[in-house]
Amino acid sequence: MLKVDAIDRGIVLDHIKAGHGMQVYHYLHLDELDCPVAVLQKVKSTKMGTKDIIKISDRIDVDLDVLGYLDPNITVSIIEDGHTVEKKKVELPEKIVNVAKCRNPRCITSTEQGLDHIFRLSDRENRIYRCIYCDAKAEKDSF
């Protein structure tokens, strides 16, 4: 079995839907960090069958809105001295700003310079976000 060391100080993103680890990695721009980051894919899980996990070996500000938008079931654990000192709750954000891009060619965001791409939660049950300008549905990028 593949073994990845526990981290002494940093952040663990757990219960990521299997196969979506790289999506979370890119949305959080973890490729821009200087510290080691491990993306574990298809790890066995009693609750989920398989899951992905991301271990970040430094304390960074994780954008919980991004995680909530991608998957509110992700858990965030803060690690200090090898122990979990805090668990952060991820919730569906009411609004996301510059997380997703509107892909509607008829939307004003396709031509107006410098506009924030803003989506509002329009259907909580189905986790659907819509562009505040044109009502187009937010599409999640896969990586």
Partner: peptide, 25 residues
Amino acid sequence: PKEGAPLVAAMNVNIPVINAGDGGH
């Protein structure tokens, strides 16, 4: 013709803006 253009105007001014039709929206 672009959807959401009147909203952009409304976000930038302090007088009332009326959407008189934005694209197919």
